[in-house]
Amino acid sequence: MALVQNGARAESAATRAKPPIRLFRNLMPKIASIPMIFTALVVFVGGTIWTIVYSFTSSGLLPRLDWAGLQQYERLWETRRWIVSIQNLAIYGICSLVLTLLLGFVLAALLDRKIRFEDAFRTIFLYPFALSFIVTGLIWQWILNPEFGIQGIVRGLGWESFNFDPLYNADIVMYGLLIAGLWQGTGLIMCIMLAGLRGIDEDIWKATRIDGIPTWKTYVFVIIPMMRPVFVTSVVLIASGIVKLYDLVVAMTAGGPGIASEVPAKYVMNNMFGGQNMGQGFAASTMMLLSVVIILVPWAYLEFGGRKRG
């Protein structure tokens, strides 16, 4: 805030003296951000362009500039494993987005009802977030293991026909991964939602109570619309977690059974290093980037671009 005011004051002083040179306005902050601009250009934009260029070559273990046209992309879309990877990511992505938001909000709303031991519950819910995906994956691999985990325990209690082996059943393996993903990620979203709820003015609650609006209606029609920025933040966080889904799969199933839990990021890794076919890996990662761009850019434009103008 102080910076902006200083800037405004300096600006008005400059206007009085002579016409300002736009480039030199707020010079210090601009100098300070040069390293970051440089990093963004070289690492992100440069790296992206480099990857896209080399996706049109037949690079093997090392990058080589011999052109192969669209060959890598043709092969990519003919590969069953890639198609399965995309379907899996779609299932995981949609379920994870909806359920994380829902669970996160419900947990936050429950905690916000001024319950006892709120701190303790908050810590419990947030704790899994402190673990890496690899550790989360290992823990859940054990819990879901049919011999040592839930199935084994329930069978030990007497229900001999009890069946729960998501990690070894190709049809539901993605949901096994989803359980672990939700367990790890929901706590953070809950905390963000809780902060959002705490930001709602107490008077709003008083007003709805006077009007006799039921609590659930207050949440759905008043509170949630007011929490729009919080939801946007949450969606961005969840979405970025979905696209880079990799380590959880590696730790829990290694893509198995068969290729039933493969994901695009793993396809990229396996092709670039395991298969020693960089061109194929680059083509796959370019497709990942493209899908992110197609989904995110129009949405981000509406969400952030619109408000600035309005």
Partner: peptide, 9 residues
């Protein structure tokens, strides 16, 4: 990839 897909499907 082919063999493991065949094997588990």
């Amino acid at each position: 990839d082919l063999m493991t897909e065949f094997w588990s499907d």
